[in-house]
Design a protein around this nucleic acid. Sequence first.
DNA 1: TATCATAAATTGTCCTGGACAAATGGTTGA
DNA 2: TCAACCATTTGTCCAGGACAATTTATGATA
Lengths: 310, 310
Amino acid sequence: MIDTHVDGMVSGLSIGAVERDTGFSKDILRVWEKRYRFPTPGRDQFGERVYSPAEVQKLRALKRLLDLGYRPGKIVELSLEELGALAGEQGNVQTCPEQLQPLLDLIKTHRVDALRLQLGQALMSQGLRPFLLDTIVPLNRAVGDFWARGEFQIFEEHLYTEALQAVLHGALNAMQRTSAAPRVLLTTLSGEQHGLGLLMAQALFAVEGCACVSLGTQTPVQEIVLAAGSQDVDVVALSFSAAFPAAQVWDALEELRRRLPGNIALWAGGGNAALARRKTPSVTVVGELDAISQTITAWRTSRAAAPSRP
Amino acid sequence: MIDTHVDGMVSGLSIGAVERDTGFSKDILRVWEKRYRFPTPGRDQFGERVYSPAEVQKLRALKRLLDLGYRPGKIVELSLEELGALAGEQGNVQTCPEQLQPLLDLIKTHRVDALRLQLGQALMSQGLRPFLLDTIVPLNRAVGDFWARGEFQIFEEHLYTEALQAVLHGALNAMQRTSAAPRVLLTTLSGEQHGLGLLMAQALFAVEGCACVSLGTQTPVQEIVLAAGSQDVDVVALSFSAAFPAAQVWDALEELRRRLPGNIALWAGGGNAALARRKTPSVTVVGELDAISQTITAWRTSRAAAPSRP
DNA sequence: TATCATAAATTGTCCTGGACAAATGGTTGA
DNA sequence: TCAACCATTTGTCCAGGACAATTTATGATA
């Protein structure tokens, strides 16, 4: 009945465990095996697939590149090192300024309390906006790169995420609960578990004085519509991480747009590659995090020109 | 290639969308259809299953009862109302004291700011421990029951969760960062997304003066081992929600136990039914939330008797 | 009656092998 | 340069079968 391996017994994961760990569905794992001859798991005494830790690690590296827009057929046969190098190419050229290094060191040495302290200090010294745009965004990228190259453990990334979330929650708590327009509903769609981007966006909205209501992650479309109505918001803002299935992004956005009253704006942001690939006048794509304030300003001026509250 | 429905188009979800929404795997959905003749989705023009919203709602109700320990064969053929009634029987007898009613009303009327205020106020007036044990635990149960009976929307539950998390994060931030023993590492396993129980546990640990390090949700076993080593903790505490696959609970716990140094204690808690079904001397099951402080006390006395730090 | 072993039913997960729509990439002709 | 077209790539779905682990029922023994 079960997945005796759950996570790795001594070594080797079941197909279900690999699905959980890597995000590749069982279907994909099986069909890749047939098509690309990778991965090629062994079999246990019952004829069930057993994936080696090395295969899982390569799968994770592949996942990251796919999220960046690469296609499976082109990169499956690369080695783990080549994959890491490929991921490293992306944008890491000008990053890692010396101001980030101390933070990276704190993560690497697992000094969580010091990390949180430093983050809080950076936040206070720079102010929320520059902190997020100039420190956290490049830091996130750096962490992601290190992780892809196997130089960061998963738990180190977890430690970092927790520390950052604590700091951001603190900042949000500290800010006055404003009621300025636009009133914004923040959430992610059903498949999307990553809440960090959402939290960063919420912080930026708050600092611009918007009244924010967050539903957290994983809200079905129908529920977003209901919540938007009940909270009487002006804007619904969705976050799409790179890990969210790109093919579903625009389907979902269009459906949500269809079901949402016309006077409620729909904004979408996040690192997902699909967002850059299409434009629709009815959905505002907020490409970079620092575009949020511009988008808010634009909304405010247009709303000032044509006030339309019933 | 895709899941055109994503979440419901006009009405009717694909099997993939239902998997995301209900937590039942595609395999289960197909095999139930054959065995129990439920659900019986229609087919679209391509012969693919299309699940009605009613079926999805019933699936959600079933999910809740299965998490409570019921078995599929006995309850699949019950109507939605009967399922709701069945869920209501569970423990809801003595609950809903009048002190909860105002909070429930705030949730029901979507007054998020007021809700957060009230929660914060209750926290301050009662103190963290009584707040969690006497207010939040029954409130959680009440919210769950209402939800199962269809009297709460999903987004209302999200609003509540967000408010509570904000309050708890605030409380954690406010507490001094203590370094008293035991040093505790908190997290959940790979399949477990629910972080609320973890947060509540962390708050209780903190209020007892323990040094807490949280990894957030979804940490693979191997990474927990690494983190426990690097953070030099005395206790690893895991949270298992009712939704976590019961069959994997003890497999995972035993594996983790095997890989963790013997001087690090392993504690498990949460609403998962599997936790009650077995006892192992090497894993401490913290049944109810209020058992945490007792467990800490027990650990401290035993450690005082036989100090074993190298 | 209580306890324990054994058999039967239940249930979740995995397997194989096939199909196909949607997205992507490239090519051709205007 | 752009648009229409075709081939390839890719993810998801389908059918039907198998089986180990768990739970429940049954019977034997103390």
